[in-house]
Design a protein around this nucleic acid. Sequence first.
DNA 1: TATGAATGAGGCTTCATTCAT
DNA 2: AATGAATGAAGCCTCATTCAT
Lengths: 207, 207, 207, 207
Amino acid sequence: MPKVVDHDKFREELLENCFKIFSQKGYSKVSIREIAKETGLSTGSIYHYFKNKEDILEQMFSYIRKKNFGKYQELIRDVDSIEDRLKIITEFWKEHIDDYQDLMLLSIDYLRNNNSIKENKMFHDFSVFYITALSDSLELRTGEAEILFTYLMGVVMNSLLIPDVVKPENHISLIYETLKTRTETDGDKRPESIDTLVNRLFTSKRR
Amino acid sequence: MPKVVDHDKFREELLENCFKIFSQKGYSKVSIREIAKETGLSTGSIYHYFKNKEDILEQMFSYIRKKNFGKYQELIRDVDSIEDRLKIITEFWKEHIDDYQDLMLLSIDYLRNNNSIKENKMFHDFSVFYITALSDSLELRTGEAEILFTYLMGVVMNSLLIPDVVKPENHISLIYETLKTRTETDGDKRPESIDTLVNRLFTSKRR
Amino acid sequence: MPKVVDHDKFREELLENCFKIFSQKGYSKVSIREIAKETGLSTGSIYHYFKNKEDILEQMFSYIRKKNFGKYQELIRDVDSIEDRLKIITEFWKEHIDDYQDLMLLSIDYLRNNNSIKENKMFHDFSVFYITALSDSLELRTGEAEILFTYLMGVVMNSLLIPDVVKPENHISLIYETLKTRTETDGDKRPESIDTLVNRLFTSKRR
Amino acid sequence: MPKVVDHDKFREELLENCFKIFSQKGYSKVSIREIAKETGLSTGSIYHYFKNKEDILEQMFSYIRKKNFGKYQELIRDVDSIEDRLKIITEFWKEHIDDYQDLMLLSIDYLRNNNSIKENKMFHDFSVFYITALSDSLELRTGEAEILFTYLMGVVMNSLLIPDVVKPENHISLIYETLKTRTETDGDKRPESIDTLVNRLFTSKRR
DNA sequence: TATGAATGAGGCTTCATTCAT
DNA sequence: AATGAATGAAGCCTCATTCAT
């Protein structure tokens, strides 16, 4: 191990590694010794960087979330058209579906570890950010963004648990098509009735 | 300790207990000693009924699934109108949302424990049954039933991870309204365009 | 399990089975449950026939020893010529080398189980019988019979531990040849010097 | 507990202790807790030095073998006369008969534990070394060395199982006398007939 | 007689964490 | 700042034996 110069940068590398390790096996199946081995540190040194095992999970989650948010925001920063944004966002989802699965699983690991659901700040922040971001970037009402996010989480979950039944590509494409149609309608003229969005999905062309 | 007479019946009681215990703390945080204590048996006796800890989870999952299916089918057995069925089903969901959360979490526990995603038969059977049942009882196309199931799983997941943001009642009511509208349309006249179901959800009145 | 009529016969069958099971895996690796399963009894019933696990080993050893002795004596009962007996005995060894291995291993298992060497009556009786029988049937001096038995036990042991180095057939053939040569000499004329038996072995033709 | 500095040296001390403990009670009757207690470590620390219980046995066997070989070779290093070597070697055997008993028993323990006879490398290496060493140092043909080794193993085994019948001193003395006589004959003139070594043993003066 | 459910001590092993060096 | 030896509680599981039925 080279002498660490940039303390923060080194910690980020550590967290990146930890994300890899935790994602593969799940929080409770990864031992400190294993983390030490994978990061090239000694077990003792791990405790210089982190208070304890749970602290690793928390710091890691926070770091990954920020990184993901950064990427997300950068992607749509200079894109003006809603339709283009929609395309970019849905493509981003397709590419990063595995990361979302990992984050979701790790959130659950965390939940299981602290049986205080209340304190599950990690996933909460993640969700609120995403719902807001969706609402802003796609000009959706909050309720719509929540539905979209919820549906997306269902896709993430099922593509993990029943990968042969639920293929994320299909569902994401469907979301894309649905929202695209909707987007084409002028903002003011979008129907307020419930006869629209879910409806579209259910009557989509698939299968 | 009274001698157990009906082996299978007793095992079901055990499984019922195990579901309670596992749901509270998660599979890996529950020790065999704890199971033994809660069920009033000795550790050794647990192994008289189950091959090992994983076997408890599997048998339990299978048992709970069957029980839930049974209840579900009984509920809609003699109900002819699709609309009535829809009402019953969505009510059933609202009442059993906690069970679905538990089953989902336990599926993930199982997944984490056996890192062979392929063999996650437990959740798979559950999903296939539900998708088929939804399709049959609500006269939905398979693709529609998959979407519905996926969205529902998103609701279940989020009501767990971000309970202050996603309230299952709201989403389930929304599904109810959406499908009710759709149901009112005559089967033959239901639009084939993508302008319907998801669309309806997205333009619902909520918030 | 059919109702047991001939109690003794049934017990012998049990012991025969136990010998098979113990030989394969060694005393301490065989559980009572396994014995019960293999013999078609319940664990409880095992304790009707035997006081405890160790008792099974003892009774079994005693039974097998008697059976083996019986066979041995029957073989040479009507054989007058020493040379013929020698042939029969050495052939018998070749055929039963596996049994001797098993008996030796089980003796050791027993020894390990009771760390009182003194009480190892099982192998002791076996040895004394064999040394006497060899001495009688081959007209060897006691000291010679002891040497022969000791060498034979070395063969048994090594053919077990280093089967690719020590082949029992070769050693037994060698014993046969050596003793045959000696036997041909008239009893009275056999040299008393130490210049004979071991000597012959060491200068045998085998590599 | 003082911090251990020389990892390897400490492990050897541990192995020395383990040999003592295993020899007394046999591999399977010694628990890790017992090993920990006897060596003054915690159970956890045992696993810092060894992969698992079997690994202790293997490393121990390997270590003891090397140590024994070392002593053996040192003893005869500067001895030119075959006769002197013979004396030294047989004396060495008499002194170390207990160690050989222990090693043999532990080999069998190992065999019982891994029912793959093929992989019993431990005793195999031991045997091959000894046969070669005997052949070299006493100028015996390989076949002769194998016979000698086999007989010796018989002595070791029987002095364990039937100590009142087979006294190792006697047998070893006999081997000494037999080989001494043989040795006195000039190498070239040693008879090739089978009339020698075993023959000598069988007609020895004992009893 | 015969059964097999029940026991609970004890087996091996893993683990997060500490601390002397 | 870094190391890795040491800890010991706790994990899962097996076992010989007993005893109510």
